[in-house]
Design a protein around this nucleic acid. Structure first.
Lengths: 353, 353
DNA sequence: CAGGGTCGGGAAAACGTTTTTTCTACTTGG
DNA sequence: CCAAGTAGAAAAAACGTTTTCCCGACCCTG
């Protein structure tokens, strides 16, 4: 009883249509492996006819090159890692989408590593990325003044930071909080508002300081005073709501005619409170948010004008920079602040067009 | 002038501390490559002393095995692909987090593929996954009655679906919409509500039918009538708000004493409308949502009782199933509906504890 | 017609592992 | 004291590519 008979008797789970390799292509086309490789990669010299023949054979056989064998010899895996501790996903997801989209166009795949603020997890993931020979790393965070718990020292591959803390010697991309805030406040000023307050998140966030600075700067340029100080609480609707309730108590002369909020949730809570007590937005008081979190901004009544941080674009750009780095192009270290975009809806009182 | 001199003159970008390979470990430990391999993988026989020596050498040299070389010979890449068209991320992100977490514990890395409902993108990504030799695929969608635009036929690797449409012959995990809805309504009944309405999303979603069925079933078991029919609109706050406004018009005798909403946004809009017009939630009318989207549920006034679909758990389980499949374990095909969990907050009128 | 150049293509090394096979030397039983 | 067995370790094949070198045939040129 030989092997063939056995195969008939034993219930083999699958014939496992062995993957077709370049060897199969070469044999079928009647050429050597090296010629086949060159034909498929558009390298070396050969008759166009030979090249075409090999190509059609590869096509009909359904040949798929083994990226790992290729990586082994070429020392490029066409693979990068995305490390993030923002499992909640508000910030990382758009970044990841932009990144993955830009990468797939260049034949690069992205490993997703969820860190969850756990140094042990971080270590494991970092090691996995090293073993898998990624060409580079994107480190994405949820705030620009903290970095995921990673020991990035002496890593053999290039690293690009996105929306996370970075040293001056790193290469990093973050949204331009100052510029975004300034644009938002300037827009309010252009609409005729003069008493513009700022309600924002906790002091501990670097973004809070930057946005407040943008607020002050825009007012200064228009020779307007700050209306009160930047009021800081947490990033929640509840805080916005509480501030809104306080505003209502004040005599209307002491009230601002516009509030620039540090994020959309605060703006939402604020608007809810005002609406509940009969203050009209934007007629009596204009509101602008930050983040342009669609699900919030669009659902607010009235729809919220907000600053978009262009996170998807940020992911795309960071990916491109990383690929440059991998390719050997020198990229100047430093923190690049990418422009934000004001999305005008109705809460700021802009005329509908 | 020899090579060494050149290295001194030319500004070499980096010495490129050549990756240390098992060959280096073997040489340093004074053994053959095969012995080194066996020592590091706890295989074969050798003096414990030899094994330890090799291990310490590997340790001090900072040896990292090359996963691709390993994969090449072992035909296992310890890598899987996550394909999703839910770039918005409401559903996929928790799934991805659960998946990635479970995988990293087993030494498996996850490729993130953003499809964006673009068949061309899908094709490219699928091909990349094949080239990168992933051991298996997770296909995640945003609704259980549509699947990402993929041609999964004749794929050489196992596939597990999560929260996406699947044939009976597929292996799929989806939340148990019927059960979740039933539990939510049963809870309202237990709290003494009798006139329980249902306001939910568009007819075209399979989840809408399932949740409505759960609502009917729970009422039936308690010998209660359906309050009206399941009212269907879109999944937005605006729709919930509109329904809320309509409820206010009705004489209070014709009003439900509880509303089970098809998602949290509808619930939020509904509560906002009711609050705005002086109807107290939950005293006059209890509300329960679906999705347990923390950012919504917790910010609603009062905080929203909602059904959690346990998406993270879903990702974890799907990953485990895929790994079983990869390992050769047979997994019964079929669609598995995983239990949902009711998260009780205050909008349902449950006594605080 | 000799010498060099180009053109088409093949052989083989290399990438870093795992695994099977082989080899050597030592132990042990009779 | 010899055959047989075994423990420890090395050799070599294999995984699927890319790439460098090489070889023979043909075409010019002088």
């Amino acid at each position: 009883m030989d092997a063939e008979d056995l195969a008939d008797l034993i219930d083999v789970p699958e014939p496992i249509a062995a993957r077709v390799t370049i060897r199969d292509v070469a044999r079928e086309a009647g050429v050597s492996i090296s010629t086949a490789s060159k034909a498929l990669n558009d390298q070396g010299r050969m008759t166009p006819e030979t090249r075409d023949r090999i190509r059609t054979v590869a096509q009909t056989l359904g040949f798929t090159p083994n990226a790992m064998a290729r990586a082994l010899v070429s020392q490029r895996s066409f693979t990068i890692g995305l490390l993030t501790n923002d499992t909640y996903g508000r910030f990382t997801l758009p970044v990841a989408a932009g990144l993955a989209g830009a990468m797939v166009d260049r034949g690069v795949s992205v490993f997703l590593c969820a860190l969850e603020d756990d140094p042990e997890r971080a270590r494991i993931n970092l090691r996995a990325m090293q073993e898998k020979c990624v060409d580079g790393l994107i480190v994405a965070g949820k705030r620009i003044d903290r970095r995921p718990p990673l020991d990035l020292a002496r890593l053999p591959m290039p690293v690009v930071h996105v929306n996370s803390a970075a040293a001056e010697s790193d290469i990093a991309f973050v949204p331009d909080d100052f510029g975004g805030a300034k644009a938002a406040v300037a827009h309010l000023i252009a609409l005729g508002r003069r008493r513009i307050a700022h309600v924002t998140g906790p002091d501990s966030f670097a973004a809070v300081a930057l946005r407040a600075e943008g607020w002050r700067d825009a007012l200064g340029e228009a020779d307007l005073p700050c209306f009160g100080v930047a009021e800081r609480g947490d990033w929640s609707e509840a805080f916005g709501f509480a501030v809104g309730c306080r505003l209502i108590m004040a005599p209307s002369a002491d009230r601002p005619d516009a509030v620039f909020c540090g994020n959309d949730q605060i703006a939402r809570g604020l608007i809810d409170a005002l609406t509940l007590h009969g203050i009209r937005v934007p007629d009596d008081l204009a509101v602008v948010g930050y983040d342009n979190w669609e699900i919030f901004a669009a659902a607010t009544r009235p729809p919220l004008t907000s600053v978009d941080m262009a996170l998807t674009e940020l992911g795309r750009i960071a990916g491109a920079a990383l690929l440059d780095l991998v390719g050997g192009t020198r990229v100047e270290p430093g923190i690049r602040r990418m422009p934000c975009r004001l999305v005008v809806r109705q809460s700021c009182g802009a005329p509908a067009n």
